[in-house]
Write a protein that binds this DNA or RNA. Structure first.
Lengths: 135, 135
DNA sequence: AAATATTCTACTTATTCTATAGACTAATAG
DNA sequence: CTATTAGTCTATAGAATAAGTAGAATATTT
């Protein structure tokens, strides 16, 4: 299941994409409109800012705004920042690969093949949908 | 990502399937062979027993054994017991449906459609693979 | 310069989940 | 009866989740 962090993050990005690139929107506006705890959202937006999706402006007339083209922002890229690996096992992750400590080898691991199949299917969806599709 | 609970559960079921239906195997044997903490595995097997996948025999010559045909046990059914919903959001889950508290309506939810697509893709894989495929 | 609006930072809290460990109880086979 | 094995119950350390509180820093307007 998606964490609320990722869910809220995607919703906020979609909201900002609707408003258009480079148009500052208040955290509190997004929080109210999308029913998100303001403080929690603040942390999420900050994380998206640090990772190059958003920028912000302080003071009156400030807020957060999208600095990428909505059609360039895939769900996959947001997911990896906010949620982590898309794969179901570390040993089948493309971006966060790690060896499983309980498996003797990946060839012997009975789950390996199925989980690669799941990953590929999921990835296809996440890589091919962008903020444009979510609007 | 899969919890270790689910991963270990699937591995244990596969191990038992290899040994054949109705052949008792020691918890400790599975734990050693699959590099799983024995106590943790105990809890997992118990859960699978309560849900009708396994049965157990106490005393000498005892152990856990499969009581379903391996080709009947889909990954999806095990996943739902040990991990929970397969869907990424409560509101797109078939077996664990719940309304999202932050969404006004499911039609307006920008994530709904994509997450249904992900669910359907994942489900196709999980429903169509059984213990037989894992062996 | 002061007032106001807004994000930024740090600290704290409550709750749940994860992955175990230990001790004791109950059943079964020989 | 005894050895073997699962069952039950309790505890726990650590991490993650989803916030809440307080105030500092920065920008704009007056």
């Amino acid at each position: 299941m998606l964490s609320k962090r990722t869910k809220y993050g995607l919703k906020a990005l979609t909201y900002l994409a609707k408003k258009g690139k480079n148009t500052p929107v208040l955290i509190s506006e997004i929080a109210t409109e999308e029913n998100i705890s303001k403080k929690f959202l603040e942390a999420i937006l900050l994380q998206l800012k640090r990772n190059g999706f958003l920028a912000s402006k302080m003071g009156k007339g400030g807020g957060y705004y999208l600095i990428k083209d909505p059609e360039e922002v895939t769900i996959a890229s947001v997911y990896r920042i906010l949620e982590g690996p898309i794969a179901m096992l570390p040993c089948v992750s493309l971006n966060y690969y790690e060896k499983c400590d309980d498996c003797k080898s990946e060839e012997e691991c009975t789950l390996h093949k199925v989980m690669i199949e799941v990953r590929d299917n999921t990835l296809k969806v996440y890589e091919n949908s962008t903020l444009i599709d979510l609007i």
